[in-house]
Computed example of a mutant assay.
Amino acid sequence: MVKLIVGFALFISLSAQAATWRITYPRPMSESDKRSIYPVKLLALALEQTGVQYSLMPSERIMLQNKALKRLMDSRDVNVVWSVTDKQREQQLLPIRIPIYKGLIGWRLLLIRDDMPARFKYVQKLEHLIKLIPVQGRDWPDTKVLQANGFNVTSDNSYGNLFNILRQAQGDFFPRSVVEIWDEIDNPAYNTDLMVENEIAIRYPEAMYFFVNKKSRPLANLLEKGLEKAIENGTFEQLFVHTFQDKLDRAKMSSRHIFELENSFLPTATPLERKELWYQPEEASAEN
């Protein structure tokens, strides 16, 4: 009888190890949308660190971010979404509190029309920049951050249409993170009549996390375990540097005039004290 119980327990253990974790994430908005490449690679890295069997697939349908988050809340279509965190999202969903971009999502360069550089030469103080109109996604936490800092924001639900809004002079600049802007400006689908402004940057504390459904604690624990292991053994940093060092070099942040903004929407549980989770910048000129 004892042998039977031990054998059954071993069978259950082996079956659990052999089970496949099926991870579904939001499908990119288009074939030219490269924003999913790094998060998917990081997801795969985290899962590989745990030794589990897994499948990693995009959702069948394209979903705007707000819809993807609602689907995640309802346990439909997706079971992992990456998103900038704020207090509301952490109340509705379960965050894995490891910033996947090491805070660079809050380092913003300005996408502008190519006939506008001269106008930005006169921006010497934050009060000058606030007089210009930024473009942002309607349901993005960044929109609330900009508004709380005094900006009058033009917004739209469609990611692709934001470039058109800027191009049509319905806004003056489109703040994009240093990890996103170079893929966008190099992409013919987005870059017509646009350029990256050369002298200004905006920076505020911000984290993008992997989120899962509130009831998906085992998946959250699995991803957290894998990410922590990748941080410990250096593979997280290797992927990060391989993906973003060229973009950081291209941004030349140390030579830019950086305007620091407040982010009152950042949850108090954000692990700001864990220095290894955040990119450490070189000295740069900053203005509050």
Score class of each variant (00 low, 15 high):
42 L>K: 00
126 L>G: 05
280 Q>N: 14
134 P>W: 02
166 L>Q: 06
240 F>E: 03
57 M>P: 00
30 S>N: 11
229 K>F: 04
36 S>Y: 09
75 S>Q: 14
10 L>Y: 08
51 G>M: 03
254 S>T: 13
77 D>G: 02
126 L>K: 15
50 T>R: 09
176 R>C: 04
120 F>L: 15
164 N>L: 15
125 K>P: 01
92 Q>W: 06
197 E>I: 09
284 A>G: 10
7 G>S: 11
264 S>Y: 11
49 Q>M: 10
251 A>M: 08
115 D>T: 14
123 V>L: 07
257 H>W: 09
187 N>H: 05
179 V>S: 07
46 A>T: 05
90 E>C: 08
206 E>A: 15
85 T>V: 12
239 L>H: 03
40 V>E: 03
93 L>V: 05
17 Q>W: 10
14 L>T: 08
241 V>M: 12
55 S>H: 09
37 I>C: 01
251 A>P: 04
184 E>R: 04
186 D>H: 12
241 V>S: 14
143 T>Q: 11
212 V>C: 08
112 I>M: 04
137 G>P: 00
225 K>C: 03
98 I>F: 09
263 N>L: 08
281 P>T: 14
62 I>W: 00
236 F>K: 05
287 E>T: 15
14 L>P: 01
191 N>Q: 07
274 R>I: 15
166 L>D: 02
52 V>K: 07
25 Y>E: 04
34 K>W: 03
13 S>V: 11
273 E>M: 15
156 D>T: 12
169 A>V: 11
195 M>I: 12
264 S>Q: 14
104 L>A: 06
176 R>L: 08
204 Y>G: 01
97 R>G: 05
59 S>M: 06
270 T>K: 07
128 H>Y: 13
257 H>E: 11
76 R>A: 09
261 L>G: 02
136 Q>I: 01
135 V>E: 09
175 P>W: 06
266 L>Y: 02
173 F>C: 03
166 L>A: 07
246 D>P: 05
25 Y>M: 06
18 A>N: 08
163 F>Y: 13
105 I>S: 04
69 L>M: 13
